[in-house]
């Protein structure tokens, strides 16, 4: 998908030479360090401090910094560094069971609430009983009966039916959700486990939803 995106963007840029020519003679190539520095300064200046806010969320870790520097197309060496660093973050559920309860996974796959902060419209705690949702349907199809799915990520319809539920596939699926950048550097997908959006047990429930033969995803 990332390769396709690069190709599409490259084509779009090639076809519209004026598109990025706001300043005469300026080209798209290479981020101007002065502009980069200003962007960082603007981020620092633009968010409200105080009660209900959390400015620590503006910190970019080394991986996000690298992805931002290369606009999500890191050179091979940097990509390998990201893969290794992110792989080292993966934690597994206590007891090591990576296939949980698919019925709970189904709820988590659909639920989009959690982690919205600020003074204007923070998430109400009662909407988050049991933790944050994964909001997977925002980007990925799954149950053939659910039509309101997004398309930013690939369709996961019949995920287990097509791939089987071998030990390797279970482990891969768990790790991919916990930290997609362990596999694909600068993947567009959130690092669901590493960033604390989902707990390891919740990820195992979603793994079961995707892989279990009883799950509607595989019907």
């Amino acid at each position: 998908m990332d390769a396709l995106k690069t190709a599409t963007l490259a084509l779009a840029l090639a076809l519209t030479p004026a598109a990025h020519a706001a300043g005469k003679g300026k080209t798209q190539a290479g981020p101007d360090p002065k502009i980069q520095a200003l962007a960082a300064k603007f981020i620092e200046q633009s968010f409200l401090p105080g009660e209900g806010q959390d400015l620590s969320r503006l910190q970019q870790d080394d991986t996000l910094k690298a992805c931002n520097q290369y606009r999500d197309q890191p050179p091979e060496k940097v990509a390998a560094e990201i893969n290794a660093r992110e792989r080292a973050t993966i934690k597994y559920p206590e007891g090591g069971k990576l296939m949980g309860d698919w019925k709970n996974g189904e709820k988590l796959y659909a639920a989009g609430f959690g982690m919205r902060i600020g003074r204007i419209e923070p998430d109400r705690p009662e909407r988050q009983k049991g933790g944050n949702g994964g909001n997977c349907y925002a980007c990925h199809a799954a149950d053939p009966k659910e039509v309101a799915f997004g398309t930013i990520g690939p369709s996961l319809m019949h995920y287990g039916k097509l791939r089987g539920a071998s030990e390797e596939m279970v482990k891969y699926t768990y790790e991919k959700i916990y930290n997609p950048q362990a596999y694909t550097a600068c993947s567009q997908m959130p690092r669901m486990g590493h960033n604390g959006i989902l707990r390891p047990e919740q990820i195992a429930d979603i793994v079961a939803y995707l892989l279990s033969p009883e799950s509607p995803v595989n019907k």
């Binding site: 962007a39 603007f42 981020i43 969320r57 503006l58 970019q60 999500d72 960033n195 959006i197």
Partner: peptide
């Protein structure tokens, strides 16, 4: 333009 492409926050 740089900010439009800057990944930030817990959702990356």
């Amino acid at each position: 333009e740089v900010l439009f492409h800057t990944r930030i926050g817990p959702m990356d």
